[in-house]
């Protein structure tokens, strides 16, 4: 692994994937979203800053493929009362930095800052923080192997977080 950032072209490609993922969550469309992840992909939202792992400390979210599949179905299930309300989001992603890059495979770790406004139950809630994406090459495209979402108020008292941020 080297910590160099290579071509503009690669950065553009990575940014486009992050934007594409954010667009899936803006709508939100979890059927499209899940396809951006590898079969062993994970989505993790820690409950404290600098949390070391999802198994020895509580997290707000830690979904692997199995739970993503359950959540995808539950999100549109007609009997889920908490989903009776419109869910709309707007994500802005910036400060994209490639932290680690395997020049040979193209696999990389990318960090970015995000602001997300989430509209749910007549209320608009702002979330802000840092994304860490692990991306792996899958043919001519990237897929997400892991996404870590560190919201800056992760250890505050929070209300329901109805959808992935």
């Amino acid at each position: 692994m080297t910590a160099v950032i290579t071509s503009n072209e690669k950065i553009r490609e990575i940014e486009q994937l992050l934007y594409q993922e954010a667009a899936c969550l803006d709508r939100p469309d979890l059927d499209a979203w899940i396809n951006l992840y590898t079969e062993d992909g994970t989505y993790w939202m820690p409950a404290i800053p600098d949390q070391e792992d999802p198994h020895t400390h509580i997290s707000l979210f830690y979904d692997d493929r199995v739970l993503m599949e359950v959540r995808r179905r539950n999100f549109v299930h007609p009997a889920a009362a908490s989903k009776d309300y419109d869910v709309r989001a707007s994500h802005i992603i910036s400060n994209v930095q490639v932290r680690e890059l395997d020049e040979k495979s193209g696999d990389c770790t990318v960090t970015s800052n995000f602001h997300c406004f989430l509209y749910y139950r007549d209320k608009q809630t702002p979330y802000a923080g840092k994304y860490t994406h692990e991306l792996v090459r899958d043919g001519d495209r990237y897929k997400i192997r892991s996404k870590r979402v560190d919201i800056i108020n992760c250890d505050a008292t929070l209300n329901t977080i109805i959808i992935y941020i």
Partner: peptide
């Protein structure tokens, strides 16, 4: 019911 059915469905 929704989460139970979603889990069983998967």
């Amino acid at each position: 019911r929704s989460v139970v059915e979603s889990a069983l469905d998967y």
